[in-house]
Amino acid sequence: MESKQTPLGYVSFSVFAWIVGLLIFFPIFWMVLTSFKSELEAVSIPPSFISFDWTLENYAEVQERSNYFKFAMNSVILAVGSTLVGLVFAVTCAWAMAFNPTKRTKDALLWMLSTKMMPPVGVLVPIYLMFRDWGLLDTRFGLIMVLFLMNLPIMVWMLYTYFKEIPTDILEAARMDGATLPKEIIFVLLPMAVPGIASTMLLNIILAWNEAFWTLNLTTSDAAPLTAFIASYSSPEGLFWAKLSAASTLAVAPILVIGWFSQKQLVRGLTFGAVK
């Protein structure tokens, strides 16, 4: 259809598309803008778009009042920790499945996928009780384990689809030259697998960062990440919109950047290789 398009058609369609896109993005834009307003201006009607006193006060106050960085630190530790633990397990597992498949590999992969279909409420009660009895409630260690296990099937699948694309001839050539298994992995496979591993890491960090079922149910304060911190704004006192916006902006900004960088790989990871 590109051939038929007139310059006028191109311009008017672009304008239309940008209006649609900006409408979809508007809630995020509005949140960021509100975070720079004073609390009074944040609730004023008609709302002010540019002509208000820009202030950074909310950002300072969010930290002062509620120790924002503690929660942010927890988010980082949970997301990165669960991702690193997950990588150790998932890389070895996916490597074995891609290069040394057995008759049951396919069944194992599908079974792993099926564990992802389990609604978390189905195991909420026993996990909660076990965590309570073992003293894991509200600990970072406990949550890292939960997030790691929750995302392990996705990591294995994503890595598997990447590893599958690596030509096995090269591996055999390396074997012929007398490369041992560890050498084969470190010098031949890993360099080719780095892009796949990197995007698996990014996707996993996004999923762990935004996870809001287990983090809300298994934490109270010590290990609570940003999801729980933001949730604490649901029962507010007084004017709080600007502060809520500032806290929210800080909470989503890093993941938005990572997400934008990894949007292409995301499709593969979230569809278990069914759409590439």
Binding site: P27, I28, W30, W241, S245, S248, V252, W260
Partner: peptide, 21 residues
């Protein structure tokens, strides 16, 4: 990028921004 951005917003932020702002 603008269109896919909402997917990366954490659910609690999404909910409170829509509800309040």
């Amino acid at each position: 990028l603008l269109v896919i951005a909402p997917f990366f917003i954490m659910p609690t932020v999404n909910a409170l921004v829509w509800k309040n702002l």
